[in-house]
């Protein structure tokens, strides 16, 4: 189903399967890599407490590490995947140049923007999907941070600080 739609926006005969496999693998690995966030977050969370006679106490006047600092590079997998997906523009173009010069046929089609449609549209879509997935993960992690961290330990402007890089 999905591959039918993609094939409509690809040079005829181009293998859409390998693109999708790359995208899925990229998203999966990126998500897996992002889980490192939790290790670091729980460590930061633990640092807020003191253990006294087997009981946990929230230390006084402690602040939790900023969300942005904990997050660190854990979402870069999604950006990396997006960049890799853009390289399929080149793969698509090369497909029309090797074995035969089907680029000649594509360039003769009586439609405007055929090169955009066949070479650029889908790779950009994959890249956007990857970035959106990363953003989705970001908001989920942020929500977890905001809910699981004791309120008095959260410094102001956490969301803003993410974009301060």
């Amino acid at each position: 189903m999905i591959s039918d739609i993609i094939e409509k926006h690809s040079p005829p005969g181009y293998s859409v399967r390998s693109e999708l496999n790359t995208l899925y693998a990229g998203l999966g690995l990126s998500l897996f890599f992002s889980l490192g966030f939790f290790a670091k977050y729980f460590a930061s969370l633990n640092a807020l407490y003191d253990i006294d006679e087997g009981k946990r106490f929230l230390r006084e006047n402690v602040k939790c590490e900023d969300f942005a600092d904990i997050l660190g590079i854990y979402l870069t997998g999604f950006i990396f995947t997006a960049v890799v997906m853009l390289f399929f523009m080149l793969a698509r173009y090369l497909y029309t140049q090797t074995a035969s010069k089907s680029i000649y046929t594509l360039r003769r089609l009586p439609e405007k923007g055929i090169e955009f449609r066949y070479f650029i549209l889908m790779p950009i879509t994959y890249a956007i999907i990857s970035l959106l997935a990363g953003f989705l993960v970001l908001t989920v992690y942020f929500a977890i941070y905001m809910l699981a961290t004791p309120n008095e330990c959260i410094t102001a402007a956490q969301w803003y600080k993410i974009w301060r890089l």
Partner: peptide, 18 residues
């Protein structure tokens, strides 16, 4: 108007995998 011109070449302009 490009549809009124067709092209056959020894380099081949068909799609190899269909």
């Amino acid at each position: 108007n490009i549809a009124s011109i067709s092209y056959a070449t020894c380099e081949h302009s068909f799609f190899p995998d269909i």
